[in-house]
Computed example of a mutant assay.
Amino acid sequence: MEDSLKIEFEKLKKVLVGESSTSDFLQRLTERFPNEVVFSTSFSYEDQVITHLIKDLNIEIFTLDTGRLFGQTYDTWTSTNAFFQKKVKAYYPDANELKEFVTENGPNSFYQSIEKRKTCCNIRKLHPLRKALQGYKVWITGLRSEHSANRQNIPQFEWDPDNKIIKYHPILHWTSEQVIAYVKAHYLPYNPLHNLGFVSIGCEPCTRAVKEGEDFRAGRWWWEDASKKECGLHIHQ
């Protein structure tokens, strides 16, 4: 199964090189992989744009509810469901795994070491992600190259060897100005934290607003070295 999917990936990659329309390529993916394309959203500016791009396509949407999200994120989730008339499927951490970790280390142990922070991310995000991707062949994401140095050279269409799935980043090369302009032009609901300087919005205890002159990822895990600021959902060497 993995080998045949990788062959399909190579074929489609050649198509994408000459594809002028993101919408056309998204349509092509749903036709080639009916009921096997899924989009992960965190309700960011970028994800709202993609939700709008795929609103009429047969693509399921899911989100990872870590249990530590901002209240504004839950509000945006609600308004997104209403605006698009879609139901975003939720995936949660395993209750027993989370209980054992919090009991052993406390509720905020992620501040104590990178190892404990990554373990927390694994339990709350990576493990639920694996469940969310089961049964799908294409994973659509809202990654943008501007967001971090690690993402500036990634391909728009790639093979994910860890999850054994095709990944497509439709707006990878969009600028922040383009993203915000699209959201406003289509009157899309968005997280009000963006208006307060929050660029990359994750769990509440691990996210702060970005100060003037700081890069996009400065607000995530701000107590850590900049080179280690990834949760593991998207790893690019």
Rank of each mutant, 00 (worst) to 15 (best):
T175V: 01
Y91A: 05
E19L: 01
E46M: 04
N81C: 04
F9H: 12
P34H: 03
I61T: 15
E31T: 13
P192E: 00
K13E: 13
N81M: 04
W221K: 11
V199T: 15
E36M: 04
N191W: 08
W77R: 15
Q152E: 13
T175I: 00
S21P: 00
V179T: 13
T103D: 01
D56H: 07
Y92K: 15
P170K: 14
R28G: 00
N105M: 01
D162L: 13
T103I: 00
A149N: 13
T51R: 12
Q72G: 00
I114G: 03
H147Y: 09
H234E: 02
K13S: 14
V179M: 01
R28M: 06
C203V: 05
H52C: 06
H169D: 09
A209V: 06
L5W: 04
Q27D: 10
A181Y: 01
C206K: 07
I114T: 14
K167V: 09
Q72L: 00
G232A: 06
L193Q: 11
N81V: 01
W221E: 09
G67C: 05
A226M: 07
R144Y: 03
P170M: 11
D24A: 09
I54T: 09
D56A: 03
A132C: 08
C206P: 06
N195M: 04
P93L: 10
L16V: 13
S113I: 03
E214P: 06
F83W: 07
F33N: 06
R124H: 05
C121T: 15
E146Y: 03
I235L: 09
L233F: 06
L172F: 11
T80I: 02
K131M: 02
K89T: 14
L233A: 12
D160Q: 02
L53I: 06
D75K: 15
G67N: 11
S109E: 07
E36T: 07
L233P: 07
Y74L: 13
K99T: 10
F83G: 02
D65E: 13
Y74A: 10
C206M: 04
Y111T: 13
Q178L: 02
D215I: 04
W77Q: 13
T41M: 04
T51Q: 15
T119D: 05
W159Y: 08
F198S: 02
E8F: 05
P205C: 01
S4E: 04
Q85R: 14
D94K: 14
G219D: 07
N150W: 00
S227H: 12
L53M: 12
A218I: 08
P189S: 02
Y45D: 07
Q27A: 02
Q156W: 03
P170R: 14
L193A: 07
C206V: 05
V179I: 14
I154F: 01
E158W: 02
R130K: 14
V38M: 03
K14G: 06
F70W: 11
S40A: 15
K167E: 09
A149I: 14
S79W: 05
F9I: 12
Y190C: 04
V138P: 03
N108C: 01
A149M: 07
F39T: 13
R144N: 05
A218W: 09
G219T: 15
Q152K: 10
S79R: 15
W174Q: 08
W222G: 03
G106M: 06
G197W: 12
T119S: 06
